[in-house]
């Protein structure tokens, strides 16, 4: 019975993902086909002047951009179903190879930010919720509201001005020092470059989890079992550690998994500001230069990434729910 349920769950989710993926890819393609940028021109760049019309036509034929838009999309879809994401016009490399390299950089950035914002967000939420209505709570709440309405790139620029320009603690951009051989790069160099973008992303991610945890903590504190625990003489931190932690931590983790979408969106902006060579930067370049294979490749990949986040969130809820129903402890 249990296995059947899980099987059904997986099947349903896969179907949902397929539909979602198709829709996202289709809309991305429609959007990019409105772009005025000619892929041939962006491919040739400055050499545009020296290449003859005939050669250009041959190139268009080679790329398949002379065909109708519908045919182009169908071509892409056909290739995709055969497991081929095509070649990037910009990098002149297999799309999958570009994504692999870029994703690693982005993943490290996002993972660090995700963990930091999760820990800080949860802690701030608990502090605010436990001190409901006090100055601390109001300060944390205002901080979150301001953050929630602040774009990531603006925070990034602000951090750059303060820490790179004024204080000079961190480099202005990129993921590694310029003009240095890969073997010479130390962990410290790498760390110095990732701190500011990671901080930007962490700050952005905090408000969501804090506000959610704050509400959850307040709800739990007003619940009947906390009143009962108080009547038994439990109070303060001990009360929270014993009865509040488990009842607020799992929902917080779920919410945090569900924020993968915002994390990715934030990463695109942060990577742009810090010229950090990750997926976010690549997708912006692909869009600006009509590199359709790369753009669609990253779209597929990011959809999968966000989808996995949501799936994990749902699974966690499902798991808690099943255990609660069966009367097991977590």
């Amino acid at each position: 019975m249990q296995l059947l349920n899980i099987g059904k769950f997986i099947l349903l989710r896969t179907l949902k993902f397929a539909i979602l993926l198709f829709a996202v890819v289709l809309f991305s393609f429609i959007l990019v086909s409105f772009s005025p940028v000619d892929p041939i021109q962006s491919y040739l760049g400055a050499e545009m002047m020296v290449v003859s019309e005939e050669q250009k036509e041959r190139l268009a034929e080679y790329f398949g951009v002379d065909e109708s838009k519908t045919q182009q999309f169908l071509n892409w879809l056909n290739m995709f179903l055969h497991g081929d994401l095509g070649t990037s016009l910009l990098y002149r490399q297999e799309v999958i190879a570009v994504i692999q390299e870029r994703f690693l950089a982005s993943f490290v950035l996002m993972a660090i930010s995700w963990i930091i914002s999760g820990i800080f967000g949860y802690a701030l939420g608990v502090i605010a919720g436990m001190n409901k209505g006090t100055m601390i709570d109001k300060a944390i709440k205002s901080f979150c509201f301001i953050l929630a309405s602040t774009p990531a790139f603006w925070i990034g620029i602000l951090l750059l001005i303060v820490f790179s320009l004024w204080l000079g603690w961190f480099p202005i951009g990129l993921s590694l020092p310029i003009g240095m051989l890969a073997e010479e790069v130390t962990v410290w160099d790498w760390l110095k470059h990732i701190i500011l973008p990671a901080l930007t992303l962490s700050i952005i991610g905090v408000s969501n989890i804090t506000l959610h945890t704050r509400q959850k903590v307040m709800d739990v504190l007003e619940s009947e079992f906390i009143r009962f625990a108080r009547s038994k003489g439990e109070e303060g931190f001990r009360l929270f550690a014993r009865h509040g932690l488990r009842n607020t931590l799992f929902p917080a983790i779920s919410v945090h998994f569900a924020s993968f979408g915002e994390l990715f969106g934030g990463a695109i902006l942060a990577e742009q500001v810090f010229s950090y060579p990750g997926l976010g930067q690549a997708i912006v370049q692909a869009g600006m230069n009509s590199d359709v294979p790369l753009l669609l490749g990253i779209v597929v990949f990011s959809t999968l990434f966000v989808f996995i986040g949501n799936l994990l969130a749902d699974l966690l809820y499902y798991l808690i729910d099943v255990r609660m129903k069966n009367g097991e402890t977590i």
């Binding site: 619940s223 009947e224 079992f225 009143r227 009962f228 009547s231 038994k232 488990r246 009842n247 977590i330």
Partner: peptide, 16 residues
């Protein structure tokens, strides 16, 4: 002094 609460949801839902 010990309270016997009225509500049956007065026990911590996640603790044995």
């Amino acid at each position: 002094i010990l309270l016997i609460p009225q509500m049956t949801n007065a026990l911590d839902p996640l603790m044995k």
